[in-house]
Design a protein around this nucleic acid. Structure first.
Lengths: 244, 244, 244, 244
DNA sequence: GATGAATGAGTCTTCATTCAT
DNA sequence: GATGAATGAAGACTCATTCAT
């Protein structure tokens, strides 16, 4: 039954790491075909995920069938099992790709030397942009309860981590006086809520561009928090958002 | 197998009352038994909905089975079909009870003579409170695509109507100068997003009371919008919400 | 479980017998109310059967639900169980009313002093007329396999008996030279088939009256069999059939 | 639980042949395996239909369960859904196979240059033979109301078409004087009724062979109609019917 | 690596029937 | 005698998953 070693999600970048692995490809090693085969495999994996995330968002995880995923890829259902062990693993990997984006821009913001308000605005901006992507939306539209317990826990941990980041930036801002005193917890909820909601209503091709939304939200969601003196300073978000 | 002998409707204290006045009914009104039967029926319907909404929120609509709904009510699955025609009808009725709350307080707010900002704050407050209830949360946690087309349309219409209300209050506020000029559409999205998100994270029994959340959000979500002069005025929400 | 004595169908006329029982009603006995109650009961029983046979013919036994039978009678489903013990018993009683008609006219024809061809024609005529009634059609449109084994046997016996009657008349006709020599078995099948088919296609309110059909079939189905000399003699069927 | 290990399609002698030439396929045509797969599939579909039609005739459509169909084929119920979309589709396909036989021999008769009586007799003969087959009997033993509206309509149209064919041949016969003047409509009903009834009483393995029935009916059902001069001409039915 | 075929688990739903009132 | 409520038995259908080829 379980003769396949359990691939585990290690909080960052399996798939992304893979793509960087292209590196050894530049030499003429005899296992080049091996390499290229692996790359082909990864590309197919990704194609599955792109198709799946779309379908899952369109119809909802439970109404979407693997049959339709396969059909859209012009393959057959069992072929999917060459790349993924189960439907919920596909779901999880979709989520993981979204989470990767978040991890990346949070890392960038963390390294930026801004004050609390600056970081918060940068976060809002980047997060809003991510919510307007398929994989980003999957962060908030998919239900962890559809995952196996282990993965579900991973998701919950990540969610909590994001929440803590919001609160931390706010707390930092309060400490450095760039943000008015307030309850970081509720403020974080309010801001995150607005942002997460984007994942539910944003429609590609609508009148609003992701950038416009991101800019507007970066201002709107923080202007109430900004301490009087720096209310007007708007910050450019790091353009870390990977879209691929 | 048949360890369920006494059928009980665990959640119906009122129902129990009913059964007690089944006998004294002969002394008063001749259609008392009739009345009481109808009431009993309504109460059972409601008990089903209360149980169902809880289960649907707990486990998600698709993972929740009617069997478990029935079990929690100490009845059998087909008994549910005395009150509802299908699983999705139950879902719809849960939503409808939440929507009723919303319709009611919006009606009250509409009739209040406040300015735009006042109405908006009242709306935020009442809406936040509703989100902290089971039926309220069902407004945003249930997926209209699980409903029959007709009901799905009803839900979508209602959602649009709520959105328009947010925008209208904001526009009114801009017109009457109680709200700073801004894009009503995006502002409405931002506010509604924060509020809707409550339905996803709020846990009964947590450290935050619905009222605290409602108050905080009423201030927090609007202070950025408020025109300088009236920034400090906080409004009590109409307490119109509860229905029974 | 089976504390109810099994009412058994004794090949003739429970219901019919009942109606003849009107007999004691002509006196002023003190148990008149008793009598009248029983008559009321019988009338309701019959009303159920009339409604049921229609519905069963309209929609087919399995698609027709007792609920709809009850609805058409403006009563509720369990009320039906005051008159019948099960759905298939209703089916059986419908069949029995049709069979009664057949038994009656066969008895009449048997007693008539006609020759074989005469009897055959009389039978065809009467049978065709019966097929154009609801209860008559139920003889051929209902499936004995829907009945309990005992009743199913009763039905099969009756069918066989009718078949034997056809064959007997034909054989008589051959013997008395009113019918050309032929295989009575196949001839009976052919004639009975044509007649039974009426139950499938005849629509009340169509252009053809039952009488017209009966007359035409009486001629058409037998003219091939008739020995030359008496080909033209047409016989009036006994008008014994109609019961109400 | 899993006492079914070897899945066998009991009725598919041909299928077995197929599987044998699965191996030699490498020596000849490259798409042989493809072909053979398709053929295997068709044969299984047919095996399902053969089993289903038998069961439906034996027990009636509603009492027959897909489970039993599957069991008789030594497969499981959902496997049936590889070949058919629903139970009623299976019913329809059974009917369609019977109808195909009818369409074929009608086409042949239409092309024959016989006079009206000749065509009618040929039709009777061929139709009688078909009624003695399982798929033929399904033409009259299955209830179109069990089908989806679209298919039900198809069935009704086909029935009407057959009826028109009977009437047309009779009318032709009257016109060309091979048939005595009569009402084509009622005559068609009478003949078709006799024939259809075969589908209800004919038992394979009984004393009567289909051919004997067909021959007898071809004479019996038409001798009453034949105009005196040609009464004796008997026609061989087209042997076009059997399809495999 | 891919496919057709098959499976098993599970859910909704229907309906005849019974029971308490 | 009638009713509302409840039940249990059963069946169709779906779909993720597996297996042999």
């Amino acid at each position: 039954m379980s003769n396949i070693s359990h691939r585990r999600w290690s909080q960052s970048a399996t798939l992304h790491g893979c793509m960087m692995d292209g590196r050894p490809a530049n030499d003429q090693s005899p296992w080049m075909p091996f390499e290229s085969r692996r790359r082909a495999r990864d590309e197919k994996r990704e194609a599955v995920l792109r198709t799946a995330v779309q379908l899952f968002l369109e119809q909802g995880y439970h109404r979407a069938t693997l049959n339709e995923v396969a059909e859209r890829l012009n393959i057959t259902k069992p072929a999917l099992y060459n790349y993924f062990r189960s439907k919920d693993e596909i779901l999880f990997e979709c989520w993981a790709l979204g989470q990767e984006q978040v991890d990346e821009f949070i890392a960038v913001i963390n390294r930026s030397g801004q004050n609390g308000l600056g970081k918060l605005r940068a976060l809002v901006r980047a997060y809003a942009g991510t919510m307007a992507t398929d994989f980003g939306a999957s962060l908030v539209r998919f239900d962890p309860r559809d995952l196996k317990p282990h993965n579900a826990q991973t998701v919950r941990d990540a969610k909590r981590s994001i929440d803590r980041t919001f609160r931390r930036y706010i707390a930092e801002g309060i400490a450095d006086k760039s943000i008015k005193p307030c309850d970081p917890k509720l403020a974080a909820f309010a801001i995150a809520g607005s942002l997460n909601w984007i994942g539910h209503w944003y429609q590609r091709g609508g009148p609003l561009t992701p950038d416009a939304i991101a800019d507007e939200f970066a201002v709107r969601l923080t202007e109430g928090l900004a301490a009087p003196s720096i209310k007007k300073s708007v910050v450019k978000a790091p353009t870390a958002t990977k879209k691929k």
